[in-house]
Design a binder for these strands. Structure first.
Lengths: 196, 196
DNA sequence: GTCTATATCCTGATAGAC
DNA sequence: GTCTATCAGGATATAGAC
């Protein structure tokens, strides 16, 4: 009944704030424990090991991102804006509390050669979520026949926006460029559609 | 005068083959030494420390990539194909001897929070090389006024292609999608040019 | 569920001989 | 320039009490 979050949630918060900004391997368990103000044994009781903690933090983060994306989709006025809503969603999500260096999921994928099962599953869920929703949102814009292709392009562009953060680009700049790139692709498909 | 490469080159080869596929942090110095068949002291005599070795391997790799890209540009027939030559260059480069998991430079950037000076310099050179050459190649295709913008789009798209490798995509698939994405962007700029 | 204290291993890097 | 042998520190994870 006190205001203090549980040790479990403090651990997840600390893991997110440290491991997803500094890198998982570069973040010793000790530092997570110190920040969470939690004893080692408590971490292993809850999550089994370090990877279990990271996997759970990643799952939670994926859910939060999904929610932020859906909010931005709801706020959009046209089908086209809904399809492009990932880009404003990214900047608004990143300006919120949690700021990974680029993308938590891709970051973990990049430094984990052979991920455990739960970790691999969460990582593929990220790609799956993006692909599925892009496809769904693309149908009213370019038609069902081209929805798969447009989804593939958007996934690549969005991944490129995230990668640009590693190249030192600002989220706003990368996101704006990506949105414009996506616009060209959508226009290209739309015009070939009206022409056909 | 024997056929055996020098200890220095064996170290660079081993570092490239191990650190850029398994990750730098996940690759202990011991394993590099073992693969290179070299004693620890030799590594530190040549490169100072682990980061020095990685930085040098990255520089060498960047040069090789540049050469491969230039070859592909020379082989292209039209201005447009020269601008799009990065994509076939990527697949041909990756099918060669050295195969990083996605991109050696971005991979190092992803797991290095605070890179040392030589490492940071090499990383920014990668982005700089891409940006400068894209701009140069874009001029005859879309004109000098739009060359900067097109270069920014191509950098993002190319970064996206590399990132797709982390999502499990094949190089051929990612490269083909990226080339198509770039085509839409170029066509968009070219048509607005002829319209203006 | 949580803490204190510790076990165990492995890492990057160095000393000193040749 | 290269080797053998080793140091000192820090990593993950566990034991056992409360």
């Amino acid at each position: 009944m006190n205001g203090q979050p549980s040790a479990r949630n403090r651990l997840l918060d600390a893991a997110e704030e440290l491991a997803f900004t500094q890198g998982v391997a570069a973040t010793p368990v000790d530092r997570i424990l110190q920040r969470a103000n939690v004893a080692p044994a408590t971490l292993y009781a809850h999550f089994g090991n370090k990877e279990g903690l990271i996997a759970e933090a990643l799952r939670r983060r994926l859910q939060n991102w999904d929610a932020a994306w859906l909010r931005e989709i709801d706020a959009a006025a046209t089908d086209r804006d809904r399809l492009l809503a990932v880009f404003p969603a990214l900047t608004s999500y990143r300006s919120g509390a949690s700021a990974a260096r680029w993308c938590a999921a891709l970051g973990v994928a990049a430094e984990t050669v052979d991920p455990g099962q739960q970790l691999a599953e969460t990582l593929s869920q990220d790609t799956q979520l993006l692909t599925d929703r892009f496809r769904e949102l693309a149908v009213p814009v370019v038609g069902a026949d081209d929805a798969d292709a447009v989804a593939a392009h958007l996934l690549l562009i969005f991944t490129g926006v995230l990668g640009m953060l590693l190249r030192g680009s600002s989220p706003e700049e990368a996101s704006a460029t990506g949105r414009a790139t996506a616009g060209f692709v959508i226009d290209g498909f739309a015009s070939s559609r009206s022409a056909g």
